[in-house]
Nucleic acid binder design. Structure first.
Lengths: 194, 194, 194, 194
DNA sequence: AATGAATGAGCTTTCATTCAT
DNA sequence: TATGAATGAAAGCTCATTCAT
């Protein structure tokens, strides 16, 4: 399995740094190779093509993301607590890796439609997680029984995404994690019984 | 004034169609010219360069957008009604021009940082409008007096954006405008007194 | 006769200024038209194409040049005096019109081979004048009877040309005309009996 | 060091041929690549851009030129002999490479001011060589003590240049090297004591 | 005679990918 | 496995010239 060889992760980490520092359109394969300390051709022993690097990057980093959040919310009893933990963890993890935040919020969105469709496949795992919290909340009576799960999920995801993007575009100069509580309250209200 | 000559709008409309149908990266100047029924060189009598076409496209279409929404909400009395009218108009206008929806939600986001910064300038007009509704709502007591305007604005904008993008990525196969009421309810809850 | 209409000379004078100030490669037809105060299309009522402007420019300015020198040397008795008068007049006239000096010494030399061949046709009148002085000098015994007229002409023309070009490239910051005496002495020695 | 790789010289030699045969303005990079037997992109592994090819061409060929002349005149005792050897070598070397003669005398002069300034830097080495001969001749009493070195250098360089250019424009149909003796005599007279 | 909006051919350079070593 | 030199397709923009008015 190529994914377990050291150079696989080495190239992906190099890609994150190169894209964050140079921008998506200035992230040439040769630059990534140089950053990873391998030859250009070596890249193609581990990835089918450039797009494959980016998809793999997203899978590695975001798969990890979903796993971490799942672990964190496992111990929580209510949907509200789970939602809070999700927002906190989401904000916290992107705060911890500023390069990754730039790449996911700004740079990777410049990729073409094909790549973005594949990225969305990866995101589906996350969206399912959100849905499961919403359904749990409806069943427990925490959330409105009329709540449209799809729309609520779009609100939750759209709000978190917009908040993180704003933070990145403001050059990460304030504490993102500190906003988790307020954002959570907004979302909870939104899902609540009005 | 070049903006009032017929070819100016003709080229912008051609650009919307070409970008929507071919994607941002396959929207060559020559294709836009052919679609507009002019020679390649003619483009450069009306626009400084390719980027200028895209910025102008956004300004023409989105400037219009903000104006339309402002007109619509002028007659409304409460912040809640204004918010509803905004969501409805936002969804309705993008429903009416499906090419434009593709271009603004998917394709233009692939542009480089420079272009996106300029696009953000145009968006600032929209964000101010949202803020003015939020402030009005806080003052009238409709919304919580503790509401963080910046976060609430990010929730509103993020939610609408995410909803429209989902609709576009689902190939616009359901009625977007019909979702306005539910989305409005979510957002109103979010801003409300909990 | 188009050459006698005012706009003909007006356009040529505009071309000299535009080329001198912007360089050969930045001297677009539209710039010349603007400088001349006419529309682009008007240029083509007086000149066949852009090359024709440049050839005509050279003919007008250099034909004039040869005529002036012929007048000046007509009153001189010896070949040596004529040569001096030629060098002086050559240097003086280019000193008087600094734009023209830039155009003939630097800019027009960037034109393509075809144009330069046509420019050389115009120069033939000048070269004949030099030859006639040389022949007169040989016949009168002032110059060596073994003097190779063609080579001597190349020396005279090459030396004057190099001297003027050096002066132009040094931004015309010394007095060119003052060099005429010294240059004349060099050339006279060269043509002399050793 | 790229300059020592075979393709470096291969591309420069191809450029000389293509420019000589097609003219400066018809010497596209793709034509040079085809002549050199490499792909277009390969050019850019060895040269920064097209201008860099032309500057390198001039440096390689003309740097060589000055060195060869220096070697040749090293063994000569008098300034007059050195001057003769310089003229002979200059004429001989350009006679030997007719393509190069066309390129340096006609085509490269069409380049823009930037390129020509860089070419002039290369020529400065040559001009210093001429000056050193002139100073030696003045000190040894061979040349007039009143000789203006700058003007004499312009005479020497201007005369040789004009002679070679005339020969090239006459399609190289006579023996250029055979003219060295006569040109030398002219120049020597010019520098002499009159 | 004069205008000036419109035309469209033409070219340098980048960079993802390959393949001989 | 790993290398890195070589490939070659692809596109934005300029500007001399035309022609309907």
């Amino acid at each position: 399995m190529k994914k377990n060889k050291p150079k696989y992760k080495q190239i992906i980490d190099a890609a994150v740094i190169v894209i964050a520092e140079n921008g998506y359109h200035q992230a040439q394969v040769s630059k990534i190779a140089r950053q990873a300390g391998v030859a250009d051709g070596t890249i193609y022993l581990y990835f089918k093509n450039k797009e494959d690097i980016l998809i793999s990057l997203f899978q590695e980093k975001m798969g990890n993301f979903v796993e971490k959040i799942e672990e964190k919310i496992a111990g929580k009893d209510t949907a509200a607590e789970k939602l809070l933990m999700m927002v906190e963890t989401h904000f916290h993890m992107l705060s911890e890796d500023k390069h990754l935040a730039i790449v996911t919020q700004l740079e990777l969105r410049q990729s073409n439609k094909d790549l973005r469709l594949k990225i969305n496949d990866v995101l589906k795992g996350y969206l399912k997680l959100v849905d499961s919290i919403l359904i749990e909340g409806k069943e427990s009576g925490e959330f409105s029984e009329n709540l449209d799960v799809r729309l609520a999920r779009q609100m939750i995801f759209g709000t978190m995404d917009e908040t993180v993007t704003s933070w990145v575009m403001n050059e990460q100069k304030y504490n993102l994690t500190a906003l988790a509580g307020s954002v959570h309250r907004l979302l909870l209200n939104g899902c609540g019984k009005g």
